[in-house]
Simulated assay, not measured.
Amino acid sequence: MNIVSYHTLADQVLFDLVKSEDEAAFKEIYERYFDVLYIHAYKRLQNKEEAQDVIQEVFAALWDKREHISLTSSLPAYLFTAVRNRILNNLAHRKYELSYLQSLQQFINQGVCQTDHLVRENQLQTLIEKEIAALPPKMQEVFSLSRNAHLSHKEIAAELNLSEQTVKKQVNNALRILRTKLGLLIFLYFLFNKNF
């Protein structure tokens, strides 16, 4: 009985043995090409773990698909092509992942800024509405028609059966009270912001 020395066998013979599920032949191919494939992968990826993963994946696929693989060129050419394709997939995935992370970070940054702005705006609106609600009822009604319904003094006077002078005085008094209670900056924001 002859004992086969796998390290003396040609690549094609080893691959034919692998196709017939010879694990020792597979081990020989692995040991023969692992280092050179790893160096090739590491040069492209610049990451030891990723390079090792690529080589492991190539050899795992070689074993899993051994029955369906037909070498059209040499075994080293097949292995280098498989490694190159996996590297390209990894680089594309890395680029996609980086793009996704940048997009996510941009969304988070914009979302936080918008959310913070909306929270402050809502707080300010609540404060202004609270002060408007504290105005005397008739003054509040006149002011609301002026600022919320956007009616002119003449239109408000006609609707409430008041003189234009009374409407003007009520609006001016409301503005003075709000300016005093809210402070100048908030008051100006309120005065020029169309949302209020």
Results as ranks from 00 to 15, higher is better:
K43F: 06
R120Q: 10
L14S: 13
L75T: 05
L118F: 02
K130L: 01
G111L: 07
A134E: 15
G111P: 01
A92T: 02
I69H: 10
L71W: 15
V171S: 01
F34I: 14
R32P: 09
Y38I: 11
V171A: 02
Q114C: 04
N173S: 13
C113F: 05
H68C: 03
L182I: 06
E49H: 04
S146Q: 00
G183S: 11
Q165Y: 06
L178W: 08
L45V: 09
E50F: 06
K169N: 14
D64Y: 08
L37Q: 15
S20D: 09
H40V: 00
H153K: 07
L37R: 00
Q46I: 09
K95H: 07
K19D: 05
K130R: 11
P76G: 04
A61F: 14
P137S: 07
N122L: 08
T126L: 09
A51D: 15
E23V: 01
N90G: 00
F59R: 08
L178S: 00
A92K: 05
K65T: 11
S99T: 13
D16W: 04
N161D: 09
Y100N: 13
V18P: 02
I132F: 00
F15L: 09
L17Y: 15
L98D: 01
H7R: 10
K43S: 02
K19F: 09
S163W: 03
Y96N: 06
Y33S: 04
L162I: 13
Q52Y: 02
V54P: 13
L145I: 13
Q12I: 14
K95S: 03
L185H: 05
F196H: 15
V58Q: 13
K43T: 11
Q105Y: 00
R176Y: 08
C113G: 04
E50D: 15
F59Y: 12
L71V: 04
Y78P: 01
D22T: 02
L62M: 12
